[in-house]
Computed example of a mutant assay.
Amino acid sequence: MKAVTLLLAVVAFGVQAHHDEHESHGHGAHEHGHGHLNLVLDGNQLMIELQAPAADLVGFEHAAKTDAEKAQYAKAMAQLKQPDALFRLDPAAGCTLTQQEINAAKEEHDHYHEHDKADADHDEHHHEDGHADMGAMYTYTCATPAKLTGLEATLFGVYPTLEKLSVQGILPAGQTAAELTPSANKLSW
């Protein structure tokens, strides 16, 4: 059941991202300073997917060449592996991180995305113009999911060039969508 729910969520998000591309400025989901957060709360599992331009998460979008760039890239990867610094969940819900998967910009050629989940359709946006997105998927298991009534996006402090986070979620009460910013970084449901 959980896999089906997540798959439906990813498909819904993919449709939304594709829809945005045709109505906005032709850059697709890729806009510097603008990240995307997808979340699914299913039973006691909370899945959070973060996607943002590599320019905001790393500081540049090309493959790391110099030692300084490689160090910066490694630091960015380490930050993505510390979701406690990126999101704050209500401690009363008792959520513990049970799985994480980092989707990094590729270092070798121009192929930026892994194909192990349903984001193959996003690739077309990132090849021609050299834009790269990075992201991560976090899965939490919550002891008391009913006490999970929102989240705080603390990642704006970690990534100062990130100005906006478009949130889409599938929750027991239905779908939610919001825009989070550094001054309005709390999502409630």
Rank of each mutant, 00 (worst) to 15 (best):
Y73K: 02
V167I: 11
M77N: 00
P182D: 15
L6W: 12
Y140D: 04
Y138I: 01
K106N: 06
D129N: 05
H18L: 13
D119L: 06
E114H: 12
G59F: 05
Q45A: 13
D67Q: 14
A78T: 03
A12Y: 02
H111S: 01
I102F: 00
H18I: 07
H111C: 03
G94F: 07
H18F: 09
H18T: 10
Q82L: 09
A64T: 07
M47V: 15
G169A: 15
A76E: 01
Q51I: 00
L89F: 01
D67M: 10
A146V: 13
H22G: 06
A132D: 10
K65A: 11
I48H: 09
T141C: 07
H22Y: 13
D121K: 08
G94A: 08
G150W: 12
I48E: 08
K70L: 10
C95T: 07
L80H: 01
C95Q: 04
H111A: 05
V167E: 14
Q82W: 02
N38L: 15
T98P: 02
E49P: 02
H131V: 06
A52P: 02
H127K: 04
M134R: 03
E69T: 00
D20W: 04
A146L: 12
A9L: 03
D110G: 10
A76F: 04
V58M: 07
K186R: 15
A104E: 00
H32E: 15
A184K: 15
E152D: 14
P160D: 00
Q16E: 15
L148H: 10
R88S: 12
N44M: 13
L80Q: 00
H62F: 02
A71H: 02
G157Y: 05
I48S: 08
A64H: 07
Y140N: 08
L41S: 07
K186L: 15
N103F: 03
A71S: 04
L165P: 12
S166I: 12
G35V: 04
G59Y: 03
D110Q: 11
D129Q: 09
S166T: 14
E107R: 00
V58L: 05
Q16G: 02
T98M: 14
A105R: 04
E152Q: 15
Q99Y: 12
P182W: 15
D90A: 14
H122Q: 02
I170K: 13
S166D: 15
L46D: 09
A55I: 05
P53I: 00
C142Q: 05
G59S: 13
A132Y: 01
D67H: 05
